[in-house]
C-alpha cells in the first residue's frame, strides 16, 4: 500500500498555499502529479489517496482529478495495473465525488473515518452486495459467492469480473479479495 497526500500534490501545483481542490485546471495539475507517482508503483499496488487536509472539493475539480484518474485504470485495456482507495474524505467531498463518478459510470472504494470501507459511485445493489461479501470474507471464490447469494455461478463470475475490472476488488487467480488485503 502506498500513501499519497493529496494536499502535498495540491501545494506543488499552486504558487500559494491553498487547501481547496477547486477548478478544472487545479484538478488537472494535481492529477498529473499523482499519475506520475502512480506510474512509479509496482503492478497491482494499492494507492491510498489521503484527502484529510483538503478543504473544499468542487465537482469540476473532482471530475478532472478523481474521475479522470480512474477512467484509464478501468478501461478494457487499462493503462496500468493498480488500485486506488480514497480516505480522509468528508461528507462534502463525497457529495462531489459521487456526482462525478455517476456521470462517468465509475465507482471507488472509500475508507471512511469510522474505519468502514464503502463503495461510492455508480454501482447496482447486487454489485454492492457481492462487493460486501468479498470484504467480509477477506477473499472468496465464485462458488462461495454463488452459494452465499443464490446467484447463478455464471452471473456471479460476470459480476465479480466486472468489479475487478472496475478496480473495486482484486482478482488473484480464482479468488476475489478486498483491495489492500494482498500486499
Amino acid at each position: 500500500m502506498t500513501h499519497i497526500d493529496v494536499q502535498s500534490a495540491l501545494a506543488q501545483s499552486l504558487s500559494a498555499p491553498y487547501h481547496d481542490l477547486v477548478t478544472r485546471r487545479t484538478g488537472l495539475a494535481v492529477r498529473t502529479l499523482i499519475e506520475r507517482q502512480l506510474s512509479g508503483l509496482a503492478d497491482g499496488s494499492v494507492a491510498f489517496l489521503d484527502f484529510s487536509h483538503i478543504g473544499v472539493l468542487d465537482c469540476s475539480c473532482a471530475d478532472e482529478f478523481v474521475a479522470k484518474l480512474m477512467i484509464p485504470l478501468t478501461a478494457e485495456h487499462p493503462s496500468r495495473d493498480g488500485y486506488v482507495v480514497l480516505h480522509g474524505v468528508s461528507d462534502g467531498h463525497v457529495d462531489s465525488i459521487e456526482q462525478v463518478l455517476h456521470a462517468h459510470g465509475l465507482a471507488l472504494v472509500v475508507l471512511f473515518p469510522d474505519g468502514q470501507a464503502r463503495l461510492v459511485g455508480a454501482v447496482t445493489d447486487v454489485e454492492r452486495r457481492l462487493w460486501e461479501i468479498v470484504m467480509l470474507t477477506g477473499g472468496i471464490a465464485v462458488e462461495g459467492v454463488a452459494a452465499k447469494t443464490g446467484i447463478a455461478p455464471e452471473e456471479a463470475l460476470s459480476l465479480l469480473n466486472s468489479l475487478a475490472r472496475r478496480r473495486l476488488v482484486r482478482r488473484d487467480d480464482d479468488c476475489y479479495s478486498p483491495l489492500g488485503a494482498v500486499a
Binding site: D20, V22, T23, R24, R25, G55, V56, L57, D58, C59, S60, C61, S90, D91, G92, D95, S96
Partner: peptide, 19 residues
C-alpha cells in the same frame, strides 16, 4: 455541510467565467 456547498457554488460559478 452547507458551508462547503456555499464555497462550491462560488468556485463553480467563478470557474465558469475562466473556462
Amino acid at each position: 455541510r452547507a458551508t462547503m456547498g456555499f464555497s462550491m457554488t462560488l468556485s463553480e460559478a467563478c470557474s465558469n467565467i475562466i473556462e
